[in-house]
Amino acid sequence: MGKPLSGHGLGMRRPHYADFLAGSAPVDFIEVISENFMIDGGRPRDTLRKVREHYPVALHGVSMSIGSADGPDPAYLARLRALVDEIEPAVVSDHLCWTRFGGVNSHDLLPLPYTEEALAITCRSVLAAQDALGRAMLVENPSSYIAFTGELREWEFLSELVARTGCGLLLDINNIFVSAANHGFSAAEYLAGIPRDSVGQIHLAGHSQGRDLLIDTHDQPVPDGVWALYRTAVDRFGAVAAMIERDDNIPELPELLAELDIARSIAAEARVPA
């Protein structure tokens, strides 16, 4: 799997549209939520076309539902393919999760049991998606609040998924941090278990402390613990494309750019070249 993106980017959020439309935001790429642009037309799609003239685009989905027991949704994949054909993104990604079953959508990233049965189903869906999209995709590790009993650890499941489908991984360092805290596993062991050449993109984000669990709110600055884990990640995977993923409580652009500078400085010290 190649590394189609490089450098450091940001998620494109509405308060910063003007900067991205002008091409004035000093980032190497932008990432957008695929579903927000899987529409027939109008201003959102036009905005994405225009921003695409300035920046490489990563399409990041939340509704592919590769872990659904009832398989992929062909209508969804056809819609995504149409967007892919128009925007020609550098990367297409979604999450290791399920969002739909029996015709009902949860609109949340629901956890999978890391079983051989779930692995076989997820592999079939990823292969179907890659076939429908005409390209390999990246799969992101989720943060989770339930750990089902299974034969595999999450990183083993992801490694097998890569081996069996040829997909790559989008490693969300914050999600590893959150799930490690919630389920009591070692984040360092997680990173060590991920194949070195499988990581095509990295997400950096913040979280919040809930009453009993860490919650993946993506509404806070990247905390020290996530930066430390990012340092471990770049030592293992090299300075692969990385970005700040802020989904809520969106600050002014300079604040996010300052965080991106921290990521750049950490990546510059990577022991493994990109």
Binding site: S106, D108, L110, Y145, I146, G210, R211, L213, I215
Partner: peptide, 13 residues
């Protein structure tokens, strides 16, 4: 499995 996790997903949904 009980615990605090299911309520997080219910709230998110």
């Amino acid at each position: 499995g009980g615990g605090a996790g299911p309520a997080v997903y219910l709230n998110n949904h």
